[in-house]
Design a protein around this nucleic acid. Structure first.
Lengths: 112, 112
DNA sequence: CCCATCCATAACCTTGTGGTTATCTATAAC
DNA sequence: GTTATAGATAACCACAAGGTTATGGATGGG
């Protein structure tokens, strides 16, 4: 994953509304109206966020009748994770297994 | 890790100069002059980037004589990773062991 | 004390971002 | 063909972001 893509992906993730959209899409696909109902902002604002997510490759969209369904595309999240875990040797602890890592992350997330 | 912190961390990572600074600090601590020499921009610009990184908790700084050394603080990267891996069930493949994940990531990163 | 060095800060500029309202387009239903 | 609905687009606004140059403040050395 190159610098341009990382700019787009991390930039897309740097907004809590967009992270909220991704969380919602992790459940099921959704149309623009569904997503607009979740946030206290206008439909065009949501459409803009969806465009940002699409350009980052984090969602795909296809027409379903008069609606456009957004679908989570998690692959760039995997690559962003790959970038981040390169720094794991600088974390305070190291983990051999993913489940150990996740257990630790859950703890530290709750602690804060 | 709450939304405000995620805003700051992902926002800090959304700039390639700041990612470059983190990569440099992964080797050794560095002062502002060292970092300015690495990029084609002015010293105040680097100082601004360092402030962003510091507010995101990604670096700490302490005076060493007349210099201020920046030191990588990777803990927020761990927490950001924790947020990202929550989406691992939506990746195209799943991995039980970190080394499997890393191997895959190295491959896909090289492929692109 | 004076001076050089390292860095921060201030002021400014341009562009991007996140929101709004108003309007246009596309699809489906009748 | 008309109409209703879903969503995109345009025009606009306020402010944040990323850069610049100029200058100020802190530290160490002679």
């Amino acid at each position: 994953m190159n610098d341009d893509q990382l700019d787009l992906v991390f930039g897309a993730l740097a907004d809590r509304t967009r992270r909220g959209i991704l969380a919602r899409l992790a459940e099921t696909d959704a149309n623009v109206g569904d997503l607009t109902a979740l946030f206290t902002m206008s439909q065009p604002a949501i459409s803009k966020h969806l465009k940002v997510l699409e350009q980052a490759g984090l969602i795909s969209r296809n027409r379903q009748g008069t609606m456009r369904l957004s679908h989570l595309q998690a692959e760039p999240l995997k690559h962003a994770t790959g970038w981040l875990v390169d720094y794991r040797t600088y974390w305070s602890e190291s983990y051999d297994r993913l489940d150990e890592l996740f257990a630790s992350l859950n703890n530290t997330n709750k602690e804060q």
